[in-house]
Every structure is written in structure tokens, then in C-alpha cells.
Measured scan of single mutants.
Amino acid sequence: MTFKLIINGKTLKGETTTEAVDAATAEKVFKQYANDNGLDGEWTYDDATKTFTITE
């Protein structure tokens, strides 16, 4: 399955995708991506669209 991450950061904005077997796996990938890029914010997830959002 394809999951999307929408980034609404103070300095970084955009989106990225990952292929994962489930939402929990995708969340780990996206949280590592956010950590690697210095993002810290509030996370939301929409199961209907398989989309995570981080807002700083």
C-alpha cells in the first residue's frame, strides 16, 4: 500500500510517499524521516486517504 506524508513545517513544506504493509510501518518510516529532517510537530492520520500530516 502507498501512504503519503504531508509536511507543513516552519521551514520544510511538501509531501512524500512510502510503500508499507500497514499504517504502523508507514508511521515509523515517516517519523524517522521527520526526525532526520529536524521536524517536530503534531501528527494526524486519515485512514480513508492513507495520509499522515505533520504540522509544526
Rank of each mutant, 00 (worst) to 15 (best):
1 M>E: 11
1 M>K: 13
1 M>P: 15
2 T>F: 13
2 T>W: 14
2 T>D: 07
2 T>R: 12
3 F>G: 01
3 F>Y: 11
3 F>V: 02
3 F>E: 00
3 F>N: 01
3 F>L: 02
4 K>R: 14
4 K>H: 13
4 K>W: 12
4 K>P: 01
4 K>F: 13
4 K>Y: 12
5 L>K: 00
6 I>N: 05
6 I>L: 07
6 I>G: 02
6 I>E: 04
7 I>R: 02
7 I>S: 03
7 I>W: 15
8 N>W: 15
10 K>T: 13
11 T>G: 11
11 T>A: 09
11 T>Q: 15
11 T>E: 08
12 L>M: 14
12 L>W: 12
12 L>I: 14
12 L>E: 09
12 L>T: 14
13 K>R: 12
13 K>V: 11
13 K>N: 09
14 G>M: 15
14 G>E: 08
14 G>T: 11
14 G>L: 14
14 G>P: 06
14 G>W: 15
14 G>D: 08
15 E>D: 07
16 T>Q: 14
16 T>I: 15
16 T>S: 07
17 T>I: 10
17 T>M: 10
17 T>P: 02
17 T>V: 10
17 T>Q: 12
18 T>W: 06
18 T>Q: 05
18 T>M: 11
18 T>F: 10
18 T>A: 08
19 E>N: 10
20 A>L: 03
20 A>H: 03
20 A>F: 04
21 V>W: 12
21 V>Y: 14
22 D>E: 04
22 D>W: 03
22 D>M: 03
23 A>L: 06
23 A>Q: 09
23 A>G: 05
23 A>I: 12
24 A>K: 11
24 A>T: 12
24 A>N: 08
24 A>I: 10
25 T>M: 11
25 T>L: 07
25 T>D: 15
26 A>C: 02
26 A>P: 00
27 E>S: 07
27 E>V: 05
27 E>R: 07
27 E>L: 14
27 E>T: 04
28 K>H: 07
28 K>A: 12
29 V>P: 01
29 V>N: 06
29 V>C: 06
29 V>L: 14
30 F>V: 01
30 F>P: 00
30 F>M: 02
30 F>H: 01
30 F>C: 01
30 F>G: 00
30 F>Q: 00
31 K>C: 05
31 K>F: 06
31 K>I: 07
32 Q>T: 12
32 Q>D: 08
32 Q>K: 15
33 Y>T: 03
33 Y>C: 04
33 Y>P: 00
34 A>T: 07
34 A>W: 03
35 N>F: 15
35 N>K: 15
35 N>A: 14
36 D>F: 07
36 D>G: 05
38 G>S: 09
38 G>I: 04
38 G>Y: 07
39 L>P: 02
39 L>Y: 10
40 D>P: 04
40 D>V: 13
40 D>N: 12
41 G>N: 01
41 G>Q: 02
41 G>T: 02
41 G>E: 01
42 E>V: 14
42 E>I: 14
43 W>T: 02
43 W>K: 00
43 W>V: 03
44 T>Q: 11
44 T>G: 10
44 T>S: 12
45 Y>D: 00
45 Y>C: 01
45 Y>T: 01
45 Y>H: 02
46 D>C: 07
46 D>Q: 04
47 D>G: 11
47 D>R: 06
47 D>P: 14
47 D>K: 09
47 D>A: 10
47 D>L: 07
47 D>W: 08
48 A>S: 12
49 T>I: 08
49 T>Q: 07
49 T>E: 06
49 T>C: 04
50 K>A: 06
51 T>S: 05
51 T>K: 03
52 F>H: 02
52 F>Q: 00
52 F>Y: 05
53 T>A: 05
54 I>F: 06
54 I>P: 00
54 I>R: 00
54 I>E: 00
55 T>V: 06
55 T>F: 08
55 T>K: 05
55 T>D: 06
55 T>L: 05
55 T>H: 08
55 T>S: 08
56 E>L: 11
56 E>K: 04
56 E>H: 07
